[in-house]
């Protein structure tokens, strides 16, 4: 099993979720995070004082998938989350040693 983590633009979340559902993904976790990357940030001004905001709002998606499905999942996220504008985000994959479904205690592929 692999853990696929994607950091994407917030407004793309629903589109990515729907695309993943369409290829049979049954679960994922989304977190509001802040990202710093090539997109750069912006400045905000309060009573004349400038603040450089380097971290911009992003959404982090995490899902554990079977080895066989990893490439399809990554490709789906990559094509759906792309806007061709800087700041579209990143996707990375790590190996998972063990996975448990809490309700049933199932492990491995059955727990995905």
């Amino acid at each position: 099993m692999r853990l696929v983590t994607a950091v994407i633009k917030p407004f793309k979340l629903d589109e990515v979720k729907d695309a993943l559902k369409a290829i049979g993904v049954t679960g994922m976790t989304a977190t509001e995070v802040r990202g710093f990357g090539r997109q750069g940030g912006h400045t905000e001004t309060y009573r004349g004082a400038e603040y450089k905001i380097d971290f911009v709002p992003k959404v982090r998606l995490e899902l554990v998938v079977d080895d066989a499905q990893v490439d399809e999942v990554v490709d789906t996220i990559a094509s759906t989350a792309a806007t061709d504008k800087i700041g579209d985000g990143k996707i990375w994959v790590t190996a998972v040693d063990r996975i448990v479904r809490i309700r049933t205690g199932e492990e491995g592929s059955a727990a995905i």
């Binding site: 802040r34 912006h42 400045t43 905000e44 001004t45 309060y46 905001i53 971290f55 709002p57």
Partner: peptide
């Protein structure tokens, strides 16, 4: 908020 006023309502 950001584009017109260079502010944000809720700081993270």
């Amino acid at each position: 908020d950001q584009s017109q006023h260079s502010e944000s309502a809720y700081q993270a």
